[in-house]
Design a protein around this nucleic acid. Structure first.
Length: 866
DNA sequence: GCAAGGTC
């Protein structure tokens, strides 16, 4: 007689084999996969581990063409379950043929039952031997033996509940994702997929709701009345000769009336007072008060127990909160630590150690490890009592270390930088679980100032207990000076401070995981995946520990909230869960649940379809915005009409600035017909133009306003960048660039000019020549070394430059003789810019532009690089 | 190309 058993994974299979085979196990391979062979109770056993699900639902081939199939049709079609792991399927069939009996030995939960049924389905294609179920809550020898000794029938309802979930999730996900994606693509060019799912969408929804609360927040003023008391009155201090000391201290701090030792703060019992008058009234009653009375003093000892043992969710939260590691990465690190034998299996809901957990030998192991020695030793001196949680899902023990290891050991075995820190967290958490509670002493003072009640409190850590091993939690003391009931204390300062209420904070990943857990979104193993999916889709982003929603996510959630609000809320998952729970409990037929679930999805789908325009208009706009933002070259700014992004649009008939909100928003601005356009990001138009563009190398253009040289604010926007004072008059010298030459001219048009090097890239620096006060230039000319120098020929420093070989008189003369004079005259009498007043239209005529070239390019251009 | 759930 041969019995074949299927476990959920290889690891479990090998464990079961070693328990039942009592060490005498042979590892063989079937279809390339490990199978464990042994004898148990006179029978031949073969145990194989699967790889989680080895089958998956999908729609028949003909429904996979998105463009040809109306997404709504998917709701009428039955998806098929297909093998996704052919190697495993082959091995299952191979083994089934040898079996006289089959035992399903997957994890004891809904998915585990379903995975077992996948093997059962495959086996039944080749055999009709009986199939039974071994149900064990943990992989302890006791449990496993008991389970295999008392086999039961597989739970059809439980398996079918998972089946219903798979089908409903797929139908909803596929239909909604395709519908939204295709609808948005009608209005915005994008290849991105906009996915919707019963877990990912509510996950995004949590972040969306928080963002909405932040945006809707309106700060309110409130007043708070506080006092700084000083223990011991002035007189007493004088008596004790403390006054001098006090003065010294004050001096040292350099702050008169500041807080010093013996000082403590109290808050008026009214707390945050939202009524200004009321606060003023109270404050008035306090006026002139010099001392307060300690009316009551209470000292309480409070104990803080260690945290519960780590289950997956708690572990992920703490890894994020304390180590700043994303849930996705934390789970991956824990997986690797588990595979390397440092820690236990990372996917568990249980936060309770088993009764027979061998704490002692593990703690002994830690006592040999330097970092953990003191904690381990303190644990060993007394009987070990672990802190336990309430949840026992009968799956795996809480995440705990398997053996003590140093950081070095961990980092050399697991090649992820965060591995040592994660191991350390798990190790310390485990040790903390076995340590005594931390004891705090909390002192509360009730004080009276002119009969007005004040409170002050302090905390002192009396016994650090588990906190000793757990540096992640804050344990700062807040000290109060020693005072007694009935004692009078001095008042150093009374204040009535106005503050503003602050908006809600962005969610942290740890908080998001808590929300997901509470609302039954995802499972211990999948919660991080749902966050990742949202990031991958461009809905969410994380910065450090905080998580925020991106525009696409926000507009999508907005659109969904308007059309199918339930989708954004955790209720959608809860509804499906309730349905399939009924299947599991045998209260509802599988077919009926499927029908009801599909009807629910259809109803939501209809709402989505009916409001397609409302749903997609904002999303499409955002996506167009994003595309435009990415296309930096054409990105102009935001539209004043609708808030979407403006961009340069090129068509056959010309170019203009248009809004990405088109066709809903038809805002547009003309552009000059010719000339390369460059957006000057650092320039802001004082007239409210959307952006300032550089047209060719000639002049600037404010979008929505016109060419800058026709603007009355031109001088303000483009003050000439001067080099230094003109040596001939009280004007300033500035660089003038022409197509074929450049030189310095005077702002007062006095006629004085000064040559500059003819070739190379010339930059005016922010440094000044100490001798003459002119600004220095930097010249980069071909392969010659870069130079920084004073150019002023009338300055001793400048002469050094001009005397250098290579800066010969020849060049200088040439510049002076041939160019600077005539050019200077045209500078002195610039073509009147008023002549171009009609140039507000995009078509600046050639003639007009020529005159403007002089003024725009010659006079207005200051920092010119050639 | 869609989901969520297993697991590696």
């Amino acid at each position: 007689m041969t019995v074949v058993a299927f476990a959920e994974k290889n690891k479990a299979a090998s464990q079961i084999a070693s328990i039942l085979g009592e060490g005498e196990v042979e590892r063989i391979t079937v279809e390339g996969l490990p199978v464990y062979e042994f004898k148990w109770k006179g029978e031949e056993w073969l145990v194989m581990g699967l790889s989680g699900h080895i089958m998956n639902y999908d729609f028949p081939e003909q429904y996979n063409k998105w463009r040809e199939v109306n997404p709504g049709v998917l709701l009428e079609v039955d998806p098929q379950k297909l093998v996704t792991r052919t190697d495993y399927a082959a091995a299952v069939k191979n083994l089934a043929k040898r079996a006289n009996k089959i035992v399903l030995a997957c994890d004891y939960d809904r998915e585990g039952e379903n995975i077992g049924f996948e093997a059962k389905t495959l086996a039944e294609e080749v055999t009709n031997v009986p199939v039974e179920r071994a149900r064990f809550s943990s992989l302890s020898p006791k449990e496993v033996k008991k389970a295999f000794e008392s086999l039961i029938d597989p739970d059809y309802n439980m398996a079918m509940a998972a089946e219903a979930r798979q089908i409903l999730d797929l139908k909803m996900g596929a239909a909604f994702t395709r519908f939204v994606t295709l609808s948005v693509r009608e209005r915005a060019r994008t290849k991105d997929i906009l996915s919707i799912g019963p877990c990912q969408t509510p996950t995004c929804g949590f972040v969306y709701e928080r963002e909405k609360a932040i945006r809707a927040f309106q700060a309110k003023d409130f007043w708070k009345i506080t006092a700084i008391f000083s223990a011991g009155s002035g007189k007493e201090r004088e008596k004790e000769g403390e006054k001098e000391e006090g003065k010294e201290r004050e001096k040292k701090r350099g702050k008169k009336g500041g807080k010093e030792r013996g000082d403590f703060e109290g808050t008026h019992r009214a707390g945050n007072i939202h009524d200004k008058e009321k606060a003023a009234e109270i404050f008035k009653r306090l006026k002139g008060a010099k001392e307060g009375l300690v009316a009551k003093k209470t000292v309480k000892e409070t104990k803080t127990s260690p945290p519960n043992p780590l289950n997956t969710t708690e572990f992920l939260k703490r890894a994020s909160k304390f180590l700043g590691i994303s849930p996705e990465l934390a789970l991956e690190v824990a997986e690797q630590l588990y595979l390397a034998g440092f820690t236990s299996y990372p996917r568990t809901e249980t936060n309770k150690y088993a009764d027979d957990f061998d704490f002692k030998s593990l703690v002994f192991d830690f006592a040999r490890q330097k970092e953990y020695k003191p904690f381990a030793e303190s644990i060993l001196i007394a009987p070990i009592v672990p802190k336990n949680g309430e949840k026992d899902a009968h799956d795996h023990p809480p995440i705990h270390p398997i053996r003590a290891a140093s950081r070095g050991e961990v980092s050399s075995a697991v090649n992820i930088p965060q591995a040592p820190a994660v191991y350390d967290l798990i190790a310390r958490h485990f040790l903390a679980n076995l340590m005594p509670a931390a004891v705090f002493e909390k002192t509360h003072l009730h004080l009276l100032v002119n009969e007005e009640p004040f409170d002050s409190s302090g905390t002192v850590l009396k016994d650090s207990g588990w906190l000793e091993a757990y540096p992640f939690e804050n344990k700062k003391d807040k000290l109060l000076p020693f005072v007694e009931e009935g004692q009078k204390v001095g008042i150093k300062k009374l204040s009535n401070t106005k503050s503003k209420t602050s908006p809600p904070k962005k969610l942290t990943e740890a908080e998001l995981l808590t929300l997901m857990d509470k609302n039954g979104i995802g499972t211990k193993a999948t919660a991080p995946t749902h966050i990742e999916t949202n990031k991958k889709r461009g809905y969410l982003e994380t910065k450090g520990k905080t998580i925020s929603i991106l525009d696409t996510g926000f507009t999508l959630m907005d659109g969904l909230s308007l059309t199918v609000p339930i989708l954004v809320k955790p209720e959608i998952r809860a509804k499906i869960e309730a349905l399939i729970q009924e299947v599991e409990d045998g209260k509802k037929e599988f077919e009926a649940a499927l029908e009801e679930g599909t009807a629910l999805i259809k109803e939501m789908y209809a709402q989505l379809e009916a409001n397609k325009k409302e749903l997609t208009s904002n999303i499409a706009g955002t996506i167009k915005d994003e595309a435009a933002l990415e296309d930096k070259k054409n990105y102009i700014g935001t539209c004043k009409v609708c808030g979407h992004v403006l961009r340069i649009v090129q068509t056959d008939s010309g170019r203009f600035v248009g809004c990405t909100g088109y066709p809903d928003c038809r805002n547009s601005y003309p552009l000059p017909k010719a000339g390369a356009l460059t957006v000057l990001r650092s320039k802001e138009c004082k007239k409210g133009g959307a952006a300032v563009l550089k047209v060719g190398n000639k002049y600037n253009w404010a979008v929505g306003i016109g060419p800058c040289f026709t603007c009355d604010l031109e001088k303000e926007c483009y003050p000439p960048e001067t080099v230094g004072p003109c040596p001939e008059c009280d004007g300033s010298m500035f660089l003038i660039n022409f197509k074929d030459t450049r030189f310095l001219g005077c702002t007062k048009r006095c006629g004085y000019t000064h040559s500059v090097p003819k070739t190379g890239k010339l930059t005016l620096l922010d440094k000044t020549c100490e001798t003459c006060g002119w600004k220095l230039f930097r010249l980069k000319d071909g392969d010659r070394p870069e130079e920084e120098f004073c150019i002023n020929r009338r300055c001793p420093e400048g002469r050094k430059y001009w005397k250098k070989p290579g800066k010969g008189a020849e060049t200088r003369i040439k510049v002076k003789a041939s160019v600077s004079r005539p050019a200077a005259s045209s500078v002195a009498k610039p073509a009147s810019s008023s002549a171009t007043s009609s140039a507000a239209s995009p078509e600046v005529t050639q003639a007009k532009r020529k005159t403007s070239e002089l003024s725009a390019a010659g006079l207005k251009k200051s920092k010119l690089k050639t």
